[in-house]
Design a protein around this nucleic acid. Structure first.
Lengths: 184, 184
DNA sequence: CCACGATACGGAGGGTGTCTCCGTTTAGCA
DNA sequence: TGCTAAACGGAGACACCCTCCGTATCGTGG
């Protein structure tokens, strides 16, 4: 790739990240991203074939830290319930950091063709590690799997994001899910 | 209202109901509804000021049966857990009967300005009755409210609808929520 | 039965969105 | 420095929701 192309690609992704984060997916148009980045829409579409692909690139950076968050939750000293809740809250915080991301990513679970498929795999494997660790301590009900957990917590995150709920409201819903998952 | 207007209004709502049910909200355009109903788009918009208002009218009928479903769940003979699960499954079945409805309605919880506000109130009061009844038997944790329950189960319904999950997958997620809500 | 005013109808077109196509410009190598 | 492959920009195709207004129809009072 030519040097100017690399520069443009990065500038576009940066600008898009800011815009999506401030305004949410639907409220940002491709024309707006192009104008803000000082390029034509053609350039936008050469680098990112669809709006969703641009979104995927824009939110890439923070997804990559998810495994660190899982490590941190597991390394905690509390009861299984406390560690599970720590993880759930981190997970919801991640998913709601960009407006509209929670629902888009949770919707893409199980859809290999989605532009978000790679992010879903990251999330699924992080949840799997949580499950494996807590199951080894005998704290989990037997029939819980990573996909189910992603969907449950993703559903909560989507609702929290959409209705712009207080952290306390999110926590009380997560407590319900955690208790349900821990129940024998 | 003139007789032809009444006929048109009903035909439009009927056609729209079928189309929305088959294809989901986003995949049905107003032009398509107008063409299928054999009217111009102007007529559509005189009867229903926005697409969401048309959707609201199209899914009106089944919403009205939600209270009957709550009665039926409460009249059951099983344990609190069994009755709660019966209600949850009926609730999810309602919300997923029209593709796209679960997320739209759950998103509208707490938004009085939404075209779905009336439907939300119906759902909230039905959930409140469930809570009151089970709380009187001492089966529920103290801090559960109807809004929280609507959001939790609505989130599950939205995920089930979006990913077209099997009933078994829905049931296992609902079991988690039910156990979490019942846990003391 | 008819004439006429109120009501309802149809569809062209405005505004905005995503995405494509292609003539023009530019980077980078020989 | 000259050439070619790569990248650029933006007009415009297409689809969507919704508005506007000239035309057609209903239904009532004479």
């Amino acid at each position: 790739m030519r040097a100017d192309a690399v520069r443009n690609r990065e500038r576009i992704a940066d600008i898009a990240r800011q815009l999506f984060r401030e305004k949410g997916y639907d409220a940002v148009s491709m024309d707006e991203v192009a104008k803000s980045a000082g390029v034509g829409v053609g350039t936008l579409y050469r680098h990112f074939p669809t709006k969703e692909a641009l979104y995927d690139a824009a939110i890439q950076a923070w997804v990559e830290t998810v495994n660190a968050a899982a490590d941190k939750a597991l390394a905690g000293e509390g009861s299984p319930r406390e560690r599970l809740l720590t993880w759930f809250e981190a997970y919801v915080e991640f998913l709601t950091r960009h407006k509209g991301a929670a629902w888009r990513i949770t919707s893409a679970l199980g859809d290999e063709g989605s532009p978000f498929a790679a992010k879903c795999r990251t999330y699924l494997s992080a949840n799997q590690r949580i499950i494996d660790t807590l199951a080894a301590e005998g704290a989990l009900r037997a029939d819980v799997d990573a996909m189910q957990l992603c969907r449950l917590v993703g559903g909560v995150a989507a609702v929290v994001d959409n209705s712009e709920l207080e952290p306390a409201a999110a926590s009380s819903m997560l407590a319900v899910v955690a208790d349900g998952v821990l129940a024998g």
